Computed example of a mutant assay.
Amino acid sequence: MKKLSGFLLFLSCFLVGCETSQNVNTSPPVAVTSTPLSVGDRTFKTPLLVVTTVAPITNIVSNIAGERVKVQGIIPEGTDSHTFEPRPSDAEILAKANLIIVNGLSLEIPTQKLANSSKPKDTKIYQIGDETIAKKDWIFDFSFPQEKGDPNPHLWVNNKYAANYAKLAAKHLIELDPEGKDYYNTNLKNYLARLDDLDKVTRAVVASIPPQNRKLLTYHDSWAYWARDYGFTVIGAIQPSDFNEPSAQDIAKLLDQINQTGVPAIFGSEVYPSKISERIAKEAKVKLANTSDDALPGEGSANAMENSNPQHTYVGMMADNLKILAENLGGNPQLVAQLNTANVVGPTAKNNQ
């Protein structure tokens, strides 16, 4: 009997060893919470959850988080982030969050209020926009006038600020999950290289546009920080500060600006479809094209680990914008073709070489 027991023990160890050798997991270990999850009579540790807001931020953060952490965006793509009202199901997601990363600068006030009331006591909320820019560098403009107190919050459209968002994501992920430090820093290094390429291509595209055409009139006023760094002038915005449609008086002023500046094109928004943009372009006899500041191109997920479309990324969104600007302002859109828009982690990472 002892011999039989010994043989069975040896056989069990041999089989377990064989199974392990056939299923080696070379992926980085998933970070887990210290709070166990009970299912029936079994207990598991659950993956860490980071909740974000708009799609570009979700994509940037998930490029750093990779496989160690689940990243979930609250605000659906193509939704007005300024007026978005979170759903009851969002409170359930926020209640499970181990870390919450928002833009801040008063962009997502309803979502932040819900996050503060729903999140676990120890879960931190970081406003990475407020961490990125000092008040002296805030921009107030057509849609965000100084008398209302809130600056233009669209920092991520500027490549330099997007890079800082990535650095802050790495910093806060390491605070949450110190064991993943090397993994997060490697992803950060690769992603910053991708953003450096984006910056170089942006400067080349801008240089290809005649100086007299480096002017922007957009529907939603989201290009202010990009324009300041890349040598463009924002001459106006169609959407007023109350986010309603412009009045007849507003439209008359915009038409005067277009005529005075001689811009060859104005730019609508994929997120804010408006017949007013078409009317203004027709009356001013200029071209109209749509750009995007928070809707990623094509079908896919803002989470890099769930996205198999190499264009459905923050870099892909900016590449599309550059191409549209060049096509309509007299520049060279072919310069954009050299950009690798894929994520540095996830299903599209194989396209990175």
Rank of each mutant, 00 (worst) to 15 (best):
G346A: 14
T123D: 03
S277F: 05
A237T: 01
F232I: 14
V201H: 07
L254T: 04
D221S: 14
P240F: 09
P28Y: 13
V50G: 10
L37P: 05
D196N: 14
L329N: 04
R228F: 12
P151T: 15
N213C: 06
N259L: 13
V336C: 07
L254M: 14
D294M: 11
A281P: 03
T186D: 06
I60G: 06
G316N: 08
D90R: 09
M305Y: 08
K96C: 03
Y219W: 15
S81T: 11
E299A: 15
Q146D: 05
L329C: 04
L37C: 12
G180N: 01
N158Q: 04
C13M: 15
N98W: 12
V69C: 07
I251A: 13
N152T: 05
N244S: 11
H312G: 01
L329D: 06
S106Y: 07
T33Q: 09
L155S: 06
A304L: 13
R87C: 04
V39M: 08
G104N: 04
H312N: 03
E299R: 14
G73K: 11
L99G: 00
P310V: 13
V61S: 05
E299T: 14
N23S: 14
T53P: 02
A170E: 08
P178V: 04
G6K: 10
A326M: 07
I74S: 15
Y191C: 09
A237H: 00
Y165N: 08
V234R: 09
Y184A: 08
N190W: 08
P88N: 12
R228S: 06
T26A: 08
G73D: 00
D122W: 07
I74Y: 00
N23Q: 10
P151K: 15
Q72M: 06
P145K: 12
K135S: 11
F7A: 11
M318D: 02
N158L: 01
A91I: 00
K113D: 08
L155D: 05
S62P: 10
A31M: 14
P246C: 07
P210M: 14
M318F: 13
D250R: 12
I258V: 04
P145S: 09
F7P: 00
I251P: 06
A31Q: 14
E245V: 07
A227C: 02
T52Q: 05
T53E: 04
M305S: 07
A97E: 01
F144P: 00
D130L: 09
P211G: 12
G129M: 03
F142I: 05
S89N: 11
R42G: 02
W156V: 00
E92P: 03
V16K: 15
T35I: 06
T20S: 03
I125D: 08
G262R: 09
P240D: 13
Y191G: 01
Q311R: 05
V51N: 11
N59F: 13
V201D: 02
I100P: 02
Y184I: 12
F232C: 14
I101N: 04
L188R: 13
L339V: 01
A289K: 10
T53L: 07
S301D: 08
R68P: 01
R279Y: 13
I251F: 10
N340A: 01
H154T: 04
L329P: 14
R42H: 09
G262C: 02
G6A: 10
K282I: 00
Y225E: 08
T111L: 15
Y161T: 03
G17I: 07
K253V: 15
K189E: 14
F267S: 00
A337P: 00
T83V: 13
S21V: 05
K45T: 09
T341S: 12
Q260P: 11
L105R: 04
V271P: 12
